[in-house]
Design a binder for these strands. Structure first.
Lengths: 218, 218
DNA sequence: TTGTAAAGTGAGTAATCACTCATTTTAGGT
DNA sequence: ACCTAAAATGAGTGATTACTCACTTTACAA
């Protein structure tokens, strides 16, 4: 089931382990928990409501998850690995340099790909963003397995294209922050802040890329 | 106490109504509630803990605030007006055009000013950002009294400088989104995501402005 | 068909929740 | 010094919370 082709733009299209061997009821619990956590927030959600919406007894939840927090982590943790999946390919650098001749191309591919990912996993991403500030384990996991890894890869990208003269001379950390900010802001605005506005996605992504290139391109 | 001078860059330095006639205990309640809400989130905070930290009886909280949610709104609401204060000056347009000859100047002034504001009101701003998604009244208030008003002013700014040829030809809404995203992202990263990193604020603001201008300037 | 371990149940538990209210304390004008 | 209204109190309320556990049901290999 796991795709592993690494040709073309597919670096950013690898999928990962789908839900393994889960009981039917366990899947129902996860689905209900995801919906309720996303809608009301973790702290304001009760296990009784989750059980009710999942159509299981409350005790069933605690047979699979020691605590309510355990349930939260079981939901949020997997999304973190999947969030960085495209960046942690083993020969990332090589594949990268041979497939993308310009920063623009690369950034566009990343943005399109992560947009699809965000679209597909919106509720869980909302939970992640909402709960990270209040759960040190989540924050730590995010910093260690998401932020730092993405940063390293972006560092590779920026320095590589900087040496090619495609990117202006500015501290790498600032360039990374500015690029990431623009791209993440687009996704957050698009799917979280104003999801019900009518978006011309292709055009707006194009403008975002144009804007970024104007800011960091030579 | 309220400053009303409108000369120089002071448009973005107006202060507003300070805490009016509040009991000493009421101030203690607000202070404790702000700290605890910011730290643990609204739903995970108990009125008993707030009362304890404030050094008052739990009943005292409910003498001043009908419900716990009422307390939340009493904390978050005022910050919204203060957030947009610089933008709702009555003769904003006139003062604006006479005081700032370039977009760059203006954006820099806004960013510096709102940075100071964010620094001074960080915990309340955190609460606002955290709780808006879960409280329709707050969301509505934010959209009506913050987002739409700021948007209108930015529209004025963008079209004005566009007619002067300082800003590229791109849909106004996209330009506003991109500018606002870059500036807000800086503040969020600076104060919420990575507050403990060592920032060279002046330099980073300058880079942000330079980046924005590269993206939207001619 | 039968044995058994895992899955599922739901009534029960102690703790905590937001909120009430009868009573006491405080502040300030006369 | 006295009066009074507002401020403050804290024990008490029923509802809800996350979680437990003795028990029943299910799935499936032998």
């Amino acid at each position: 089931m796991t795709k592993n082709d690494t040709n073309g733009e597919s670096i950013f299209e690898l999928s990962v382990e789908e839900n393994k061997e889960l009981t039917q009821k366990q899947k129902q619990i996860l689905e209900a928990a995801i919906n309720i956590f996303a809608e009301k927030g973790y702290a304001a959600s009760s296990t009784s409501e989750i059980a009710k919406q999942a159509g299981v007894a409350e005790g069933t939840i605690f047979r699979h998850y020691k605590t309510k927090k355990d349930l939260l982590i079981s939901i949020v943790s997997p999304i973190m690995s999947r969030l960085v999946a495209p960046f942690v390919i083993n020969d990332f650098k090589k594949v990268l340099h041979t497939n993308y001749e310009t920063v623009e191309e690369l950034l566009r591919a990343i943005l399109f790909n992560r947009k699809a990912f965000a679209e597909k996993n919106l509720p869980i991403i909302k939970i992640m963003l909402q709960e990270i500030p209040f759960h040190p384990e989540l924050k730590e996991q995010f910093m260690k397995h998401v932020a730092s890894k993405v940063y390293t890869r972006l560092e590779d990208i920026v320095t590589h294209f900087q040496s090619q003269g495609q990117i202006i001379d500015m501290p790498t950390s600032s360039i990374i922050r500015l690029i990431a900010s623009s791209m993440i802001s687009y996704l957050v605005t698009r799917f979280i802040i104003m999801p019900e506005a009518d978006w011309d996605d292709e055009a707006e992504i194009e403008r975002t890329i144009q804007y970024v290139m104007g800011g960091i391109g030579k």
